[in-house]
Design a protein around this nucleic acid. Structure first.
Lengths: 104, 104
DNA sequence: TCTTACCGTAAGTCATGTCTTACGCTGAGT
DNA sequence: ACTCAGCGTAAGACATGACTTACGGTAAGA
């Protein structure tokens, strides 16, 4: 739901791999687990984290749960980084101006 | 040095706070520690992680070590996320086309 | 209804990461 | 030379997180 949860979620390698799989195409838990080096329950747990971070969505299809990436979640993370980027540039500019003023 | 280290580095709240401080203006370790809820050695350790991730740079000034953000590091992280974003859009497009073809 | 596929959760283990205190090194000033 | 400020690192405590196996619950098919 927030950029903080998103970045924590994507910090884990397995979860990143899982997210990449979902970026390619949505799918049920079992199919996803086949392409990952961990057990199916582990995948479920990772999906829970990704879901709570707002990075994926679920859709029930019979007894299957089809997971897919939630683009708004990734957009939020992008926006946060871009804001950070702006801060860095502003800080850099301030440093330059200060140096010019003091004439170090 | 890689996006993976960067995202892991910024996943920690204290380290994010530290990085935000540096985004505002560079400074020595002690000064940074005063604005953080942890001890000075802890700040040193966090700075090491940020440094190894390529997110900050160091400059010696007497016995002081002036840390500053490394813009290329943040740019790398941005690039990774943007690439991810493109993948997601491509995946979405593929899904749409597949749905159109199969006419689900 | 009975079975089976599919999945989430609980419980417990084990590794990893974050913090603290203690210590040692280096450069500046007296 | 001596002292002190400023850091980095080592060592150890502690919490957190990622994984496994075991279990229970739900929907589809025979």
């Amino acid at each position: 739901m927030s950029y903080a949860e998103s970045i924590v979620a994507l910090a884990d390698p397995t979860r990143r791999q899982l997210f990449e799989l979902l970026a390619a195409h949505p799918g049920p838990v079992g199919a996803l687990a086949e392409h990952l080096p961990v057990s199916r329950p582990a995948v479920s747990q990772h999906l829970k984290v990704l879901s709570e971070a707002g990075l994926v969505t679920v859709r029930a299809e019979g007894t299957r749960r089809i997971y897919a990436v939630r683009r708004e979640g990734l957009a939020e993370l992008r926006a946060w980084i871009d804001g950070f980027w702006d801060d860095v540039l502003a800080g850099f500019e301030a440093e330059v101006l200060a140096r010019k003023g003091n004439d170090t």
